[in-house]
């Protein structure tokens, strides 16, 4: 009896209907996500490109060679790397510390959560404007605190050697909220039995943190780091907010990779250079994603 397949209950192929449901989403994804990807990849290899008519001619690595030897692009790359590889580890460490503290206190958890989460919903541009003034050399609060602590006030917004640091500090502040939310969620998933067992065994707090919390949280830490590195590498709005759409600080000293791409496109109208810079950007993003996937597989502990 049971060996007889009950074909009648199985839904028949309903392909046509499926495509109808997919259609709107598919059109938008194709036109505004997939097509531009290939188009930009092609654009970067044109030797000449006319924006108005959307036509290019020639094929070669000239645009790529130009971008890779452009000192402004070098500056953009090194600034972006600073924001990413200095800023993100600091943000992740701070967020982890704050999340672990919030998770372990007996009272007022909710209040702290609300306060720390707040920046998540605010526009980067708006809060960036606030930071622009907080960093002001003469009447900004950051220099006021510096003087208060007996430190030398700095020209945060006008010294070309400091501008990227200022942007990085802002991105650290701005990135904390999201990471704290994610870490708190991760901590909630950690089985509290481990802690009870450790307490019964009389394990020290430090040992508990390094031997239990951290390993159990490692998948979350890698997930958060991965998102944050990639997100930081795309820094643009923060620079526009603190400086200007036209120029990233004195002599473009705070320029980032994405700022370079947009500037090349909108201000200089050099579409093929913008596209070439975008290709380099894509290669870096893909490499970072791949590397982190490999590292994550090797070092994270899945309990």
């Amino acid at each position: 009896m049971s060996s007889k397949r009950q074909r009648t209950l199985r839904p028949h192929r309903n392909g046509a209907a499926a495509w109808l449901y997919l259609l709107p989403s598919l059109v938008v994804i194709t036109v505004f996500l997939i097509y531009p990807l290939f188009k930009v990849l092609r654009m970067g290899f044109y030797q000449k490109y006319v924006f108005i008519t959307d036509t290019g001619s020639g094929f070669g690595l000239d645009a790529l060679a130009y971008v890779l030897s452009d000192p402004v692009y070098h500056r953009a790359l090194s600034n972006t790397c600073f924001i990413t590889f200095v800023g993100v580890p600091i943000t992740v460490a701070l967020a982890l510390g704050i999340a672990v503290m919030i998770d372990s206190i007996p009272r007022f958890k909710g209040i702290f959560q609300n306060l720390y989460f707040l920046p998540y919903v605010t526009t980067v541009y708006a809060v960036g404007t606030v930071f622009k003034w907080l960093f002001h050399s003469d009447y900004g609060y950051i220099n006021f605190f510096f003087k208060f602590l007996g430190l030398e006030p700095q020209a945060w917004m006008t010294d070309p050697n400091l501008v990227t640091l200022s942007v990085t500090i802002f991105t650290i502040w701005n990135g904390l909220a999201l990471k704290i939310i994610l870490f708190l969620a991760g901590l909630q998933k950690v089985d509290k039995q481990y802690y009870q067992a450790a307490r019964i065994d009389g394990t020290s707090r430090r040992r508990v943190f390094f031997r239990i919390t951290l390993p159990l949280l490692s998948p979350t830490i890698w997930m958060v780091s991965m998102i944050s590195f990639i997100h930081a590498f795309k820094t643009y709005s923060a620079v526009v907010a603190m400086f200007d759409k036209e120029a990233a600080g004195p002599g473009n000293s705070a320029i980032t990779v994405v700022f370079y791409i947009y500037n090349m496109f909108f201000k200089k109208g050099q579409v093929h250079y913008a596209a070439a810079a975008a290709i380099v950007f894509l290669v870096i993003i893909i490499t970072m994603t791949a590397l982190q996937k490999i590292v994550a597989k090797k070092f994270t502990y899945y309990g």
Binding site: P11, N14, K234, A275, F281
Partner: peptide, 28 residues
């Protein structure tokens, strides 16, 4: 639904998550 190329298409959808939108703005 069941249709030809379903899993392949879903893979395409998944991989679009990796494309940085910054890259697409030029052509868009």
């Amino acid at each position: 639904f069941r249709f030809r190329g379903k899993s392949l298409l879903f893979m395409v959808y998944l991989s679009t998550m990796m494309i940085p939108t910054e890259l697409l703005l030029i052509q868009n």
